[in-house]
């Protein structure tokens, strides 16, 4: 009864979240005393598939049905459910990404399985199978008891450290029948936001708020982000008044993120904003008000005017990069 993990890929390459999910699955398999089978969908080279072995997958199911080249949640759920049945999986692991969120609930119904989304720790298996997840939009954590024979866990991105556990995987072509009715919804065009790092997967996020005084002042925020290889984000008021696009809004009613480093510039730190970012590993707040609530939630703070601090910070990052090449 192995642990089955869906390893997500984009344009033929696995995402970082896929390696996190495989690591998570393999550590779970160790707890359960079993092995890890990964399932991949799309045209992925043998060498890339073998990468999953580095994180502990001993068997890889490679699905290459061309109808799945575009994402269709119903069909993906059918394939993964069939694999779970064929493998006799007791636990199915996915990433809690846009794809995972679209697939996991359908999978739960198909497998009559309990589903815990956004899990941040390995499950514990005493008398009950429990797992910890974020809840109340990051304001709390909850322990979920899974009361069904099959459990589905979706791993919050950037919350579980990748663990190498090399195995030599077997690779099996796996193309189960998929009902035509799974293809009623059709994915058309994909519009990429201009070459930027995705805010939910980024390791560093530079975010700014009303303290920037106007959209015309965002150049320095973008420059700092570019120097750090970071994604840009913003607070709710700034998205609401149209200074920045909605997809940049992080916080309770925006995106919840947990990067390694979150830099907040000119954001006061309202409870709703903090809820969406407080699981970042390190938080830096830059605010001219030394009483700003953000300093209570931050690891490092600079009480100063963003218009003076940020340009100096950009120079400091440039100097750091120059000296560490």
């Amino acid at each position: 009864m192995p642990v089955l993990v869906f390893a997500e890929s984009i344009d033929g390459k696995f995402k970082k979240s896929a390696f996190e999910a495989v690591s998570y699955a393999n550590e779970t398999a160790k707890i359960l005393g079993t092995t890890t089978t990964a399932i991949s969908v799309g045209n992925i080279t043998g060498d890339d598939l073998k990468q999953l072995g580095e994180y502990g997958a001993s068997k890889i199911l490679s699905v290459t049905d061309s109808r799945l080249n575009n994402f269709v949640n119903q069909a993906y759920a059918s394939v993964i459910a069939q694999a779970a049945k064929d493998e006799g999986a007791e636990v199915v692991v996915l990433s809690n990404t846009y794809t995972g969120k679209a697939v996991a609930p359908r999978l739960a119904v198909k497998l009559q399985a309990s589903l815990a989304t956004g899990v941040i720790q390995l499950p514990s298996k005493g008398d009950k199978f429990t797992v910890k997840k974020k809840s109340f939009s990051g304001k709390a954590l909850s322990e979920v008891v899974c009361n069904t024979p099959v459990k589905i866990l979706s791993v919050a991105p950037n919350s579980f450290t990748i663990i190498k556990s090399p195995a030599t995987p077997s690779i099996t072509a796996y193309n189960p029948a998929i009902p035509d009715t799974d293809f009623r919804s059709v994915s058309g065009e994909i519009v990429k936001s201009s070459g930027k790092v995705s805010v939910t997967e980024a390791e560093i996020v530079v975010s700014a708020g009303r303290g920037m005084k106007g959209p015309e002042n965002w150049g320095m925020v973008e420059e700092l982000a570019a120097e750090l290889g970071a994604a840009t984000a913003c607070s709710k008021p700034v998205a609401d008044i149209g200074w920045r696009p909605h997809h940049e809004h992080v916080g309770q009613t925006g995106k919840a993120i947990s990067p390694n480093l979150y830099i907040a510039i000119g954001i006061s730190g309202a409870i709703q904003h903090l809820a969406g970012v407080n699981s970042s590993k390190v938080i830096v707040a830059i605010n001219k008000d030394p009483e700003a609530p953000f300093f209570k939630a931050a690891d490092y703070g600079i009480a100063g005017d963003a218009f003076e601090v940020v340009p100096k910070l950009i120079e400091a990052v440039k100097a750091f990069k120059a000296s560490h090449h």
Partner: peptide
């Protein structure tokens, strides 16, 4: 009901 939220806690303080 497949799941039960059994226990809650606040995130660790900074």
């Amino acid at each position: 009901a497949f799941t039960v939220n059994e226990k809650y806690e606040l995130p660790p303080a900074k």
